[in-house]
Write a protein that binds this DNA or RNA. Structure first.
Lengths: 239, 239
DNA sequence: TCTCTTAGATAGTGCCACTGTTCAATTTAG
DNA sequence: CTAAATTGAACAGTGGCACTATCTAAGAGA
């Protein structure tokens, strides 16, 4: 197919596809003439992968390039690909850096959990940043307190690792690893929010105003606004 | 304290604090004279909250404003605050919208899980988007397949709901709800990545090259690069 | 032949979160 | 009392990023 067809099927503007080509995210099509190239279903696949990494994981275009390069590198063990992807995802919103104490605590936490990771893993830094914020809020950051989250994380991680088609052709397995790291993370995040709502509703809102109530005037629980674009001037005075 | 002191203690530039004041994220200080205002520790707290929402959840400034307004609204039940915060977090990277089939499947999933949420919850849409991507990848999206993630999500949600200091002054509880929704989500995400690494290492890398090996030439497992800023021109040729 | 599409190169746009600049009114150190 | 520094307010400017638009020459297709 030609580029316009590729654009149609992928739902992306031609200009955007050209942009990805320029940035090296999408391999060039097979040139048919000097002004024409043939694109395949593989390109369509690739575009879906790019959009997943951009839309869901919100990775910068440059970082998507890094992940894709790892996916394409036939030499690279899947384990390393996982590492690259994790690094990309974890460091996506890297701006501030973690404190030394935070790094210390992160190491301690991982040790207490008996989670061995490679010594230079950037994940420690990301985790440390989170612990820094938690400490700032006065929340405990020891293994015992955080056990529920650790257990949940571990449980899904086990399932996800089982889920990798290690016997399949590398290209397919690589695709799964890259997408899976991102998309199942988002799934977990969304399910967590949904569960919060379900739990809180069952616990606090369920008795007073169930769904079958006729007129629960005081709209207890009813997402006030879908986060409008601007809404200045509503602050209190504070002390 | 005056603004420069507030800047010093918070670690933020004065210009940024002024920006937040303008945007209504930070309440004005108590004016001492026409060119001077007094800021309190509450302002410091508020700045930390703002940074948590910006840095960790990556919420747009306008959305942070929405959440803060909800936090400050003494009338608003905590349950609604939770909803506002969830909406903000879930819809942060909203761009594409979910398919109808996706929404359908999301509803089915929640029903199968016995998770009752408010009918108009925007979470359904967010969840549907994730399911759309999963389906696009050929992954199953039924309750049975996704049970592990749902169980994990539910488990942490229960703990988190228990964690809200419902008896404490509303201001404090509100703060906890807003921050907690965001920060424990990030914690879970990071722990998941760490667990993935730990599991994969134990499973595939552990036997061959343990840490005590002297010279494991082929640097199996060693985060290739920390995602450099640019790296064009490494694509394959594909078909 | 005449019109349409394409590849490739370059420049421009729009959004967003700051950041810097200017000004007048103090405050403060000496 | 005076000079230097600080502040709040208004507003323009900046930088990063992901596209998006324009232009040109070269085929493709009817």
């Amino acid at each position: 197919m030609r580029i316009s067809e590729l654009a149609r099927q992928s739902g992306l503007p031609v200009a955007t596809i050209k942009f990805y080509l320029r940035e090296g995210l999408l391999p060039p099509g097979a040139p048919v003439s000097r002004t024409q190239a043939e694109y395949s279903d593989a390109h369509l696949e690739r575009l879906r992968l790019i959009r997943a990494l951009r839309d869901i994981a919100d990775l910068p275009v440059a970082t998507v390039g890094t992940v894709l390069a790892a996916v394409d590198d036939e030499e690279l063990p899947l384990l390393d690909l996982l590492g690259v992807t994790q690094t990309a995802v974890a460091g996506a919103k890297t701006s501030a850096s973690a404190s030394e104490v935070g790094v210390e605590l992160a190491g301690q936490l991982l040790a207490d959990l008996d989670w061995t990771l490679t010594t230079d893993s950037p994940l420690v830094e990301s985790l440390a940043r989170v612990l820094d914020v938690l400490r700032g809020e006065g929340e405990p950051v020891d293994a015992e307190s955080l056990r529920p989250w650790a257990d949940a994380a571990r449980a899904v991680a086990e399932v996800e690792m089982d889920h990798i088609p290690v016997e399949a052709p590398r290209a397919e397995a690589a695709h799964t690893v890259a997408v899976g790291t991102v998309i199942y993370g988002e799934l977990l995040a969304q399910l967590r929010l949904a569960a919060q709502e379900a739990v809180s509703l069952a616990r606090f809102g369920g008795e007073a105003e169930p769904v079958e109530e006729p007129a629960p005037k005081r709209s207890r629980r009813a997402h006030p606004e879908p986060a409008p674009k601007r809404s200045r001037g509503q602050q209190p005075e504070s002390a």
